[in-house]
Computed example of a mutant assay.
Amino acid sequence: MTTRTDATFFPPIPEAQRWLKGVTFPPDRPLINLSQAAPAEPPPPEMLGAMAAMLQETATHLYGPVLGLPALRAALATDWARHYGAPVTAGQIGITQGCNQAFAATLSALTTEGDEVIVPTPWYFNHKMWLDMSGLRAVPLPTGADLIPEADAARPLITARTRAIVLVTPNNPTGAEYPPETLRAFFDLARAHGLKLVVDETYRDFHSRPGAPHDLLTTPGWDDTLVQLYSFSKVYRLTGHRVGAVIANPELLHQIEKFQDTVAICAPTLGQKAALWGLQNLGDWKDAQRQEILTRRAAIAEGFAPLRDRGWQLRGLGAYFAYLDHPFAEGAAALAPRLVREAGVLTLPATMFTPSGDASGERCLRLAFANTDSAGLARVLDRLARVEGPLATPSGAA
Rank of each mutant, 00 (worst) to 15 (best):
24 T>L: 14
25 F>Y: 15
26 P>M: 13
26 P>W: 15
27 P>D: 14
27 P>G: 08
27 P>E: 15
29 R>E: 12
29 R>I: 06
30 P>L: 11
31 L>C: 08
32 I>C: 05
32 I>R: 06
33 N>D: 15
34 L>G: 01
37 A>F: 09
39 P>A: 10
39 P>K: 03
39 P>S: 11
39 P>I: 08
40 A>K: 14
40 A>L: 13
41 E>I: 13
44 P>Y: 01
44 P>N: 14
44 P>F: 00
46 E>N: 08
47 M>K: 09
48 L>P: 06
48 L>G: 14
53 A>W: 07
53 A>C: 03
54 M>R: 05
54 M>T: 07
55 L>D: 06
57 E>Y: 01
59 A>W: 02
60 T>R: 02
60 T>I: 07
61 H>F: 09
61 H>I: 03
65 P>G: 03
65 P>Y: 10
65 P>T: 07
67 L>R: 15
70 P>F: 06
72 L>V: 08
73 R>F: 08
76 L>W: 14
76 L>P: 02
78 T>D: 11
83 H>D: 14
87 P>E: 13
87 P>K: 09
88 V>N: 00
93 I>G: 06
98 G>H: 05
100 N>G: 11
103 F>G: 08
104 A>D: 09
105 A>N: 10
105 A>M: 04
106 T>P: 02
107 L>M: 15
107 L>I: 15
108 S>E: 11
108 S>L: 04
108 S>F: 09
111 T>A: 14
114 G>W: 01
116 E>S: 00
118 I>Q: 01
118 I>V: 14
119 V>N: 02
119 V>H: 01
120 P>V: 12
121 T>L: 05
125 F>E: 13
125 F>S: 15
127 H>L: 08
129 M>N: 09
130 W>V: 12
132 D>A: 15
133 M>G: 13
133 M>A: 15
133 M>P: 02
134 S>H: 07
134 S>N: 09
137 R>T: 14
139 V>A: 02
139 V>I: 14
142 P>V: 07
143 T>Y: 03
144 G>C: 08
146 D>F: 04
146 D>G: 05
148 I>D: 00
149 P>S: 10
150 E>S: 12
